[in-house]
Design a protein around this nucleic acid. Structure first.
Length: 500
RNA sequence: GCGGGUGUAGCUCAGUGGUAGAGCGUCACGUUGCCAACGUGAAUGUCGUGGGUUCAAGUCCCAUCACCCGCUCCA
């Protein structure tokens, strides 16, 4: 089997396990599902919550220079004009049915030529009409030589097919020359809705395509109310929506997804330093969750990849079975966003630096992470098959910090008072963490069931417990068992999770 | 969006136009003395969905939806 096939097999096994154990379900599955939307089941929601809590704990709670925020999903549409989401990303495109090429509609031109042989259409790709005519010249010369004359009747941009789709038949593909272009379509990836009961042009609104803009829009509010001083960050976790053309790779590219974003504001002359700081810190953070550093890559964007306003950008990438893909982007966005919002809102978004006695628009570093992508990476990373005494075993090697269940408690057998002791331990632990109690069937089966859920330890009450108050603690990864006093269970778990 | 593939029980999958199945899992009872033990029994199906052909459709035809792969896209 090739490496690619093996990797593909891994995704299939992983999606089967995720379904079987209640990590991830297809959204509205009983109605046939809906493309690009996913639900988290009982184990999945714990995993996801653990990821978000770890991020919030590490990026907000334990830091002195960060405050949190939770913005609405629907905002004044002017926000998206200022951010550029409404303008530049709605370029109409045309596709060729024949050669599968895709072109920006305003760059595809039809040059209609009249000769003795009749009217024919030349398809060219050019920035504007003069360039289109220029590009058509060699072909024109050829026709003129053959037919004696070649007169240009009309030069048309494929833009017109946006309003008049039937005109698409009058265009030739600039790549293959066939008359097989489809009408232009807009690729605006924001979900549109209407605010209020009446659907009119004035009531159009959008579901946010990123959480970041809510932070910029509230910059002044936070500065005015929170006594923050540069450099400081504003953090937010929340849902975002993008009407992706082609959702793919399980939950990796969904139309509804959750982001963990920070806008870290700093003095302009310190932005390069802070950019490096956040890039490296965020890269390292994923290893704390249990992602192997050999599967994590930090990829610095080349100059040609950068947005015009960005001074630097790096992606934290993970080696998924379906390829190396982005978990988080860290960008040095300069003062672009605040300046834009200042222009569009007419409100002053400058910061007054009391030390230097000067007023300026802060620069910003944006570490923007995907919650669902991180969860998917953790699932991929954790999945493992090994062999125990000749039997195949499937287990999820989650770091105890993010494991959905922290422990399971079993009586070795369902008699002699063992269930009562086990239940008491379970109640005690359950008050602190998600813990599972199970007394059904053979002990081996119960262990294996927890292995698939990724539960780090199983605590078993046996005959000896009744004598000396000790229980066995079985480790998911090593299968080693140790005896500890039953009163130490909580401390043992906390230690495992790195809490003490 | 284009092309190819797939869709039957919770999972993995058999199923020749003629009574919907298996393995695993789940549940109940019994048994149990540390790694998917055993016995007995049980539940679970819009055969993705909607049409059509046929005496009869899981099976043939059409449409549609979802998933996977390749291209494309990815602020």
């Amino acid at each position: 089997m090739s490496e690619a096939n093996k990797q593909q097999g891994l995704m299939e096994k992983l999606t089967a396990l995720a379904k079987r154990r209640g990590f991830i379900f297809q959204s509205s599955e009983i109605y046939g599902g809906i493309n690009g939307f996913w639900d988290y089941g009982p184990l999945g929601v714990e995993l996801k919550r653990n990821v978000k809590n770890a991020w919030w704990h590490d990026m907000v709670t334990t830091r002195d220079d960060m405050v949190g925020l939770d913005c609405s999903i629907i905002m004044n549409p002017r926000v998206w004009e200022a951010s550029g989401h409404l303008g530049g990303f709605a370029d109409p495109m045309v596709d060729c049915k024949q050669c599968k090429g895709r072109f920006r509609a305003d760059k595809v031109w039809a040059v209609k030529v009249q000769s003795k042989a009749g009217v024919q259409v030349l398809g060219v790709e050019a920035d504007d009409e003069p360039h289109a005519r220029q590009a058509a010249e060699p072909a024109l010369a050829k026709i003129a030589k053959k037919q004696g004359s070649a007169d240009v009747l009309e030069v048309l941009s494929a833009d017109v097919t946006l309003l008049q789709p039937d005109l698409a038949a009058a265009f030739a593909c600039p790549s293959c020359g066939q008359m097989t272009l489809m009408p232009a379509r807009k690729f605006n990836l924001m979900f549109k809705t209407y605010v209020g009961a009446i659907e009119s042009e004035n009531s159009v609104a959008y579901l946010r395509p990123e959480t970041a803009q809510g932070i910029f829009a509230n910059f002044k509010n936070v500065v005015d109310t929170s006594r923050v001083k540069l450099p400081f960050g504003i953090a937010q976790i929340g849902k975002s929506f993008r009407n992706e053309i082609n959702p793919r790779n399980y939950t990796f590219r969904s139309r509804e997804f959750e982001q963990m974003e920070i806008e870290f504001f700093c003095r302009p002359n310190e932005s390069a330093k802070w950019y490096e700081y956040w890039r490296d810190l965020r890269h390292k953070w994923y290893t704390n969750l249990g992602l192997k550093s050999s599967n994590l890559h930090l990829r610095e964007h080349g100059k040609e990849e950068l947005a015009h306003y960005a001074a630097g950008c790096a992606d934290v990438e993970y080696e998924f079975p379906f390829g190396v893909s982005e978990l988080e982007g860290i960008a040095n966005r300069g003062d672009y966003d605040l300046t834009r919002h200042q222009e569009f809102s007419g409100k002053d978004l400058t910061y007054f630096d009391d030390e230097a006695k000067e007023r300026f628009v802060p620069h910003v570093i944006e570490p923007s992470a995907g919650v669902d992508r991180t969860c998917l990476a953790l699932l991929c990373e954790a999945y493992e098959e090994d062999e125990v005494e000749g039997e195949k075993r499937t287990l999820m090697r989650f770091h105890p910090r993010i494991a959905p269940l922290k422990a399971a408690v079993f009586p070795l057998v369902k008699k002699e008072g063992m269930p009562e002791v086990a239940k008491a331990i379970y109640r005690d632990l359950k008050a602190n963490f998600p813990v599972y109690y199970d007394e059904k069937g053979a002990i081996g089966r119960r262990y294996r069931r927890q292995d698939e859920a990724g539960t780090p330890v199983c605590i078993t009450v046996d005959g000896q417990t009744l004598q000396d108050q000790t229980v066995t603690v079985r480790d998911r990864d090593s299968l080693q068992q140790v005896r500890i006093d039953k009163s130490r269970c909580l401390a043992y778990l906390k230690e495992k999770m790195g809490l003490i």
